[in-house]
Amino acid sequence: MNGTRCALDGCSFRYASDESVDGVERGVHAIDHVSLQARAGEVVMLVGRSGCGKTTVTRLLNGLAPEHFRGSLHGEARVGGLHAGVAAVEDYATEVGSVFQNPKTQYFHANSTDELAFPCENAGMEPGEIRRRIRERLRAFDVEHLRDRNIADCSGGQQQQLAVMAATMLDPGVLVLDEPTSNLDAEAMERLRNMVKRLKRDGIAIVIAEHRLA
């Protein structure tokens, strides 16, 4: 793949008639002949109005479509050796980290440290390695004040920071963010931008869907 971590080649996708399609008119292709690629250490921005297909692209990259969000896919969407519509969604766990518009929808625990540990526990890591990874992430992003916090007491920006860290706990090669700044103020957006810059330096391919280019 010539250094490419993820790619879409001529992809068209139409949701099944009974699926939620995020503003896309039923029976119409959510995306039509879309191609893109993201290499290691590269940030790719998907920018456009609501309903133009940004979220659909992210779902093809993290395996949620067409397995979870059902529909017909033509073309090829791949991440590493995984192909959308062929690989099971659980196979993407170590390949793609996902951060959604509202971080509250992706939390499994009330405690921040437990939330960071959760992906590693699912992967069967040893407790010592899990603790090491948590320490490393908190130091790397300079957010050690977020250790052992009640997530409900954290600000929206802090919750999004935790979501980004949790999405990178298994060292994925690709990180997908779907409108991650929609609920953030200017200060929180700057902190998120700095996190993205750090992940870019670490060689992660990052795909961001946003309706605001800034």
Rank of each mutant, 00 (worst) to 15 (best):
E19P: 03
E19Y: 03
S20C: 10
S20V: 13
S20G: 06
S20N: 13
S20I: 14
V21R: 08
V21D: 04
V21S: 09
D22A: 10
D22V: 09
D22Y: 14
D22T: 06
D22G: 08
G23W: 00
G23Q: 01
G23L: 01
V24Y: 00
V24I: 03
V24N: 00
V24L: 00
E25H: 10
E25C: 08
E25S: 10
R26Y: 11
R26F: 13
G27Y: 11
G27R: 09
V28F: 08
V28S: 12
V28P: 02
V28G: 06
H29S: 15
H29F: 15
H29C: 15
A30T: 01
A30H: 01
A30V: 03
A30Y: 01
A30P: 00
I31P: 03
I31H: 08
I31V: 11
I31G: 04
I31Y: 09
D32C: 09
D32W: 11
D32T: 07
D32K: 06
H33Q: 11
H33S: 09
H33F: 09
H33P: 07
H33E: 08
H33T: 11
V34F: 08
V34L: 13
S35C: 06
S35E: 04
L36H: 03
L36S: 02
L36M: 13
L36D: 04
Q37P: 12
Q37E: 14
Q37R: 15
Q37C: 12
Q37A: 13
Q37K: 10
Q37S: 12
A38E: 06
R39P: 05
R39L: 03
R39Q: 02
R39S: 04
R39F: 05
A40F: 13
A40N: 14
A40S: 15
A40H: 14
A40W: 10
G41T: 12
G41E: 08
G41K: 08
E42G: 03
E42C: 02
E42W: 04
E42S: 01
E42I: 10
V43H: 11
V43P: 03
V43I: 15
V43S: 08
V43A: 07
V44I: 11
V44Q: 04
V44P: 15
V44N: 05
M45K: 12
M45F: 15
M45E: 10
M45Q: 15
M45L: 12
M45D: 13
M45C: 14
M45N: 14
L46Q: 01
L46E: 00
V47T: 14
V47R: 11
V47W: 14
G48S: 11
G48W: 12
G48N: 15
G48V: 08
G48R: 07
G48H: 13
G48A: 06
G48M: 13
G48F: 10
R49C: 09
R49Q: 10
S50N: 09
S50D: 02
G51I: 00
C52P: 13
C52H: 06
C52N: 08
C52F: 10
C52E: 05
C52D: 07
G53N: 04
G53Q: 03
G53A: 07
K54M: 01
K54R: 03
K54G: 00
K54Y: 01
K54H: 01
K54V: 00
T55D: 02
T55A: 02
T55H: 02
